[in-house]
Design a protein around this nucleic acid. Structure first.
Lengths: 140, 140
DNA sequence: ATTAGTGCAAAAACTTTGCACGAGC
DNA sequence: GCTCGTGCAAAGTTTTTGCACTAAT
């Protein structure tokens, strides 16, 4: 199972493997889209009644710091998370309704002439809209 | 004064012109960079002691909804605001330390093949880093 | 005179933290 | 056994809201 390889990797970096950490990562793995901590908490509370939101927040932070998941803020004031892409650098079409993503292979960075003195840390290119599914729902 | 033309525009759209609204817009106009509501409030409290943070938040929301200012979240969990660019579509280099921006003329959108069924609402291309000034400060 | 804007107080929404206990190694 | 992870409680931070009063039109 894919979760296991991530877990082994975490163990190698000195983290422990707990059922809850595994469950959180598993849910992110099974759902290839952006989701909020709140959403994750609600799901977890059902399936895993002793799961607390602090645990979710702490694990999300850990997973993000270890580069296993990505964080973005594209709606409201809450952060959203998804599995970090393992397959090379790219960007995303993001559905603002369901968080589903599609890959944008093209990265605009190589074409830029970065101004003298500006030190690039990171960049963000996101195309936001409705995916086919949510578009149908919205227009009904 | 430039603030006046924005104010007239707001009045034409049914909003009223108040000293505080004018002051907020004026500060955004004089400072061509991203700033947080918190920053704006702190400045306002000094110069305009009766200014409350609710007023700042409400005005920022109004100005954003009217397309007069732009909102973005590129650091922490707080939204940042700046005057919306009037001069054609473009993107920005953004200094994560001071919020200062530089224009990126190139927009990657025309080069994209948007997937069938995806309805584009908006897009975001931001290059984040340190501007020349803040880079010097950071590395000292 | 009418209604939008404001301040106050409160709350909502999201996130973090200190501490003690329990679980993974 | 040692230490990390967790739950609890609490607090921090950012943002929103109901209500009554003030001010712009």
């Amino acid at each position: 199972m894919e979760t296991d390889s991530y877990m082994s990797e975490l163990r190698e970096r000195g983290y422990r493997i707990t059922g809850k950490r595994r469950e959180i990562l598993g849910y992110l793995l099974r759902n290839d889209r952006y989701m909020s901590a709140r959403e994750l908490i609600e799901y977890m509370k059902d399936r895993y009644p002793t799961m607390s939101y602090e645990t979710v927040y702490r694990n999300l932070k850990t997973l993000r710091d270890e580069g296993i998941i990505e964080e973005s803020q594209f709606a409201d004031n809450e952060a959203k998370y998804r599995m970090a892409c393992q397959s090379g650098h790219h960007h995303h079409y993001i559905c603002v309704a369901c968080g589903q993503t599609m890959v944008i292979e093209h990265c605009p960075m190589p074409e830029l002439c970065v101004p003298d003195g500006f030190q690039v840390l990171r960049h963000r290119f996101e195309v936001l809209g409705y995916c086919q599914n949510c578009r149908a729902v919205e227009s009904k």
